[in-house]
Amino acid sequence: MSLFFQVILDGLWAGLLYGLIAAGLSLIWGVMDVLNFAHGDFLMVGMYVSFFLGFLFKADPLVSWVASGIFLFLFGMLTYKLVISRILGKAMAPLLATFGLSMMVKNLVLNRFSPNFRILESTILEGRSFMVGDVIVPLPQFVTSLFALAVLGLLYWMLTRTRFGWAVQATALDGEAARLMGVNTEKIFLLVFGIGGACVGIAGGLLPSYLATHPDVGTLFSLIAFMIVAMGGFGSVPGALVAAVMVGLIESLAGFYIGPVYKYIAVFGIYLVVILIRPKGLFGW
């Protein structure tokens, strides 16, 4: 029985991390109908920021997440200003452009920092864990999960309780009507892209505590995040969280009870079934 709980909890930690990564993607899609193909590369950049702060200045990921969050907030806004704002609303153009951005960022990092896997030594959380009964809870994953809940909670609070959040929702629902209310929707788009970047930047900042950094690290996370956003319902932050935890649990259960090589077959299989039954996702409008 304790083995079962171990598998469930491992799945939960993975799921909450996915939720944190997917939240920004979901927000950006919900507000401006843009699928940011470079989202996984934003994560990768966040990891490099955190890794090098640790490697060069001995900063721990528990501190560096602030820097990578801010860095990706700015990087997100820059992406909006230089790329997205010029082509917003032009059919597939934003998707194609962020695809190009993804390739460019990945290859730039590859070129500057080599394909080497980089592991941050002696971080505060490294190798630590605690026990709940017979179940092991690894501290890096646990702390990341707490961050995920805090960031998602904050995001949800901001969207539903603040005037800025209402303006974001209004912009998502009807941009022209929002402008007629006095909302500078251009500024909302800019900030939303920044906030989406910051969420994934925080995830990237924490990850070097337990995951190696390399140029391709964002790719699988990107795929999983796309899947979660589609499954949760495009634009729904709570939907993204629920779908993310589902994915984490399925991955963990299938990986343990069927076999590690089957875990993504199970995950993407169930994704397909969900989309076939509910094309708008579990919480879609």
């Binding site: 929702q169 629902l173 929002a178 007629l180």
Partner: peptide, 10 residues
């Protein structure tokens, strides 16, 4: 505006 354009989900 024409057709009201309320924020439908709010």
């Amino acid at each position: 505006p024409e057709a009201r354009r309320l924020f439908s989900k709010l």
